[in-house]
C-alpha cells in the first residue's frame, strides 16, 4: 500500500479524502496549505501527492511546478471543482499525473488513484 500526502486547506476535505484512502490501506500524511505540503514533501518520501488546486500560500499549480522541479518522478493528482483553462494548461505544462473532479464517486476516485500509483 502507498504512502500519500493529502494537501487541502479545508480540514473537512482533508479528513474525508484521508479517511477514504486509509480505509483502502494507504498511509496518509496531511498538509493544510501548499507551503506546508511542499515542506512535508521535501522532508519525507511519498508514493503520491493528492492536492487541492485552490490553496493559500502556494496554489496547486505552483505546488506542482516546484515538486516536479525538485523530484520529476513524483506523482501528483489534483482534486478540483472546475476544470479551468489555467489548471489544464498548467497541469499539461508541468506534468500532472491525474485529475479528480469534485464531486466524485469514491470508487471512481480510488480507480484514478490506483491507476496513477501503478503507472511506471
Amino acid at each position: 500500500m502507498a504512502r500519500i500526502l493529502v494537501a487541502d486547506d479545508q480540514e473537512s476535505m482533508r479528513l474525508i479524502i484521508s479517511g477514504m484512502l486509509e480505509e483502502n490501506g494507504h498511509t496518509v500524511v496531511t498538509a493544510e496549505d501548499g507551503l506546508a505540503a511542499f515542506e512535508k514533501f521535501k522532508n519525507d518520501s511519498f508514493d503520491l501527492l493528492v492536492a487541492d488546486v485552490n490553496m493559500p500560500g502556494l496554489n496547486g499549480i505552483e505546488f506542482l511546478r516546484k515538486v516536479k522541479a525538485e523530484k520529476p518522478q513524483t506523482k501528483i493528482i489534483f482534486v478540483t471543482g472546475m476544470l479551468e483553462a489555467a489548471v489544464k494548461v498548467g497541469a499539461e505544462k508541468f506534468g500532472l499525473d491525474g485529475l479528480i473532479l469534485k464531486p466524485f464517486d469514491k470508487k471512481e476516485a480510488l480507480e484514478i488513484i490506483g491507476k496513477v500509483l501503478n503507472r511506471e
Partner: peptide, 15 residues
Amino acid sequence: KLSTLDTFQILIIPT
C-alpha cells in the same frame, strides 16, 4: 454550475 457544491461542502457523491 455546481453552485451548491461549496454551500453544502460536497466532495463525494452521493451525499
